[in-house]
Design a protein around this nucleic acid. Sequence first.
DNA 1: GGTTCATATTTCACTGGTGAATTAAAAAAT
DNA 2: ATTTTTTAATTCACCAGTGAAATATGAACC
Lengths: 174, 174
Amino acid sequence: MARLTNCITMMDEGVGRVSQIIPQMPALEARLCRLMLMLGDDIEEELEFKLKPHKLNHSEFLTLMILYSRPDGSSTPGELCEYATQGATNMTRIANALVKRGLITRGASEEDRRRVLIRITPAGRRFVQKMLPPMFPRVATMFAGFSDTDKRHLDRLLRKLAGNLDQLGENRRS
Amino acid sequence: MARLTNCITMMDEGVGRVSQIIPQMPALEARLCRLMLMLGDDIEEELEFKLKPHKLNHSEFLTLMILYSRPDGSSTPGELCEYATQGATNMTRIANALVKRGLITRGASEEDRRRVLIRITPAGRRFVQKMLPPMFPRVATMFAGFSDTDKRHLDRLLRKLAGNLDQLGENRRS
DNA sequence: GGTTCATATTTCACTGGTGAATTAAAAAAT
DNA sequence: ATTTTTTAATTCACCAGTGAAATATGAACC
């Protein structure tokens, strides 16, 4: 049976019952929130599934892709943390793993000797170019039946949501 | 600076550069995919932030809410696993934690003695009713500036995406 | 009715990720 | 110029979640 659809049905019923007991709950918003969480998790699962044969996990893959997508193919742990949304601790481990596989190199920065320079290797580039294309069909399938307008709408709404989340994030830190 | 917006800008540039090297990449779909992952993570972070004062994590909260939203306030580990999307192993730990806090009880099932019956306690209900309302304002803020049509659209598109993900999920398992 | 197979839960060993403390270098203050 | 503060990366100890095996019960088969 369709796992997600099943969960969603159950969630709809649950929210319905809760908002009868607690009517001031923003039910529609809560549902959208739950939907985003469920889909996010499921997409992550799908991604990890495609990465498993290559013995990469999500954060290692993302880190490698950021480097690959850089004009000069290099960055620093701190910057990678920011864009991969990872703690510095974990980035150390990720870099260790990728260095061990020869996909990146780690070296000292000349200008600022606190910094470490991380660079994707030719082998790393070849690896990405080989593993990426087989993932395309399933990514495309995710949006099967979406018209161009659907995709544009979704894109717009998600970016709008991102803006609001950033505001929440600001006063979460302060 | 706005964290998510910053990551998104960087992601847009990255996808742009990658799809110049590998033009057959479904760039729009890949971007939507990344957006869903980023927003999912950020919403989770926001949620955990609101849960921290209550010393609950996401999966414990979700489990408790499922029970709360049940007409009879009870379920079994297996069923909770399904709806909370957790492994059985982790559900054991979650139940241990909630039992220890007196929010649920665990007992043997009469009909099927392999099963365990989990039930929310009156204290568990009071706990939910007290902790939930303070979360509403921030949930509402997430969708500030969304018209009713926007919300309906987003809801429709996310459910459609869920349908597609279910299909992928099917042949992932088989 | 006993054997085989399937299901529900738990235990154990491991992976991925985080916060707090550490080390070292750069920048700012006096 | 020296001290103080800030920034970058790493190490260590811990929390959350997973897969494989163990245990126990129920269902199906003959």
